[in-house]
Amino acid sequence: MATTMPFKLITPTKVVFDGVAELVIAVTTEGEEGILPSHAPFLAALKPGVLRANVVTEGKTERLELATAAGFLQALPDRVTALVDSAFTFEEIDVTKTREELDAATERQKTAADSAAAAREQVVIDLANAKLRLTGH
């Protein structure tokens, strides 16, 4: 049985990762989901959260960790694709700025006019929280 599978992480503006992985763990709306090779066909909606994968580059296994916005995860027996609105690596995250975004969104949510606007702010809050979690804050 194959121990690795092709894995792609795609945002509308670029392909963030395209390679092989041994394991992909993503936060779906139902909770964390781990995908190993030869997984049954599976399609889930992703929440903003930290996406982890054990990726293999040049024979070595490395840990890939990214803070991702909402999206979708598709697993097929021979490949895994994650589609997200945006993805950030550890280096790309500015902690102070993220904190500010988080505070601003929390404030806006308190004064939100309707539930739809509050839900929109919640998306921002969740992504900011995921970014902070990734950076260990």
Binding site: T29, E30, E33, A40, L43, A44, A45, F72
Partner: peptide, 27 residues
């Protein structure tokens, strides 16, 4: 093709996907 498993349900995933689809088409 194949029994695809959806989490939590195909209807839910679709309801998330359709707005994305519109958004991305405009983009």
């Amino acid at each position: 093709k194949g029994a695809v498993e959806f989490a939590p349900s195909p209807e839910f995933v679709l309801s998330q996907l359709l707005p994305k689809y519109l958004e991305f088409t405009i983009y």
